[in-house]
């Protein structure tokens, strides 16, 4: 690629370009910015990255990432341990937490079943979820997967495996997030599929 760039910088650019949202061009800009702001930005970033690499781990219960294991959500005394919200990724967990409505606990799958990405049930944290649900003490599982084909396929797959009474003979409710008109959305802009979904899951006013 570059003729007169030192291998140290080249390597930095190559690694940065592997980050989501960054291509070779933006990686070059990011590398340049880091080098220009060596003391105020680059060194603190190095420390932050090294700390994160050392301390952050996956929660053994839900798959969230945290410096503590179990994570601070699983360990929080005020949260309802009997309601599990199943999400695709940690980013989705964060989105749920930003909304600050849900007071239960989570289960992070780590993706969805996907042919192109070669992701199969055994690559996801599905066995752990089944164990949690069948183990008892769970009253509801909320499936909060994305409303994509892969997300919904995964939701069906999970439902098939956790339906029915648990080991203690108790029934577990399985629900999913509503699909339909977004808050502040206008009908005119919605596609047919969304309108159909909204209509079929309408509720008494």
């Amino acid at each position: 690629m570059a003729q007169n760039i030192s291998p140290e910088i080249e390597r930095l650019i190559k690694l940065l370009s592997k980050l989501p949202g960054l291509g070779p061009r933006s990686a070059r800009r990011a590398a340049l910015e880091l080098i220009k702001k060596r003391e105020p930005l680059m060194r603190p970033l190095v420390t932050a990255m090294s700390d994160a690499a050392d301390k952050i781990e996956e929660c053994g219960v839900c798959g969230n990432i945290d410096a503590a294991n179990p994570c601070h959500i699983c360990a929080a005394p005020g949260r309802d341990q009997s309601v599990i919200c199943v999400v695709q990724d940690v980013g989705d967990l964060w989105a749920m937490e930003r909304a600050a409505t849900f007071k239960g606990v989570y289960h992070v799958l780590g993706g969805t079943l996907s042919a192109i990405d070669g992701i199969r049930p055994e690559d996801l944290r599905i066995a752990g979820l089944i164990g949690r649900v069948k183990g008892g003490g769970i009253s509801e599982v909320i499936l909060a997967m994305n409303a994509t084909v892969d997300g919904q396929t995964t939701a069906h797959y999970i439902t098939d495996h956790i339906e029915g009474p648990n080991q203690a003979g108790e029934r577990v409710t399985i629900s999913r997030l509503a699909h339909g008109v977004p808050v502040g959305g206008e009908l005119d802009y919605l596609d047919d599929g969304t309108i159909n979904a909204a209509l079929s899951s309408r509720r008494p006013f």
Binding site: S114, A115, I116, G118, D150
Partner: peptide
């Protein structure tokens, strides 16, 4: 028919491992 197919390969090069994926997305 399956909803989509996928081929995933790990390509080893001199100094790196590159993930190649080709296939369909159901959408």
């Amino acid at each position: 028919r399956a909803p989509a197919w996928g081929v995933n390969a790990s390509l080893m090069t001199q100094d790196d491992m590159i993930k190649l994926a080709i296939g369909q997305v159901p959408e």
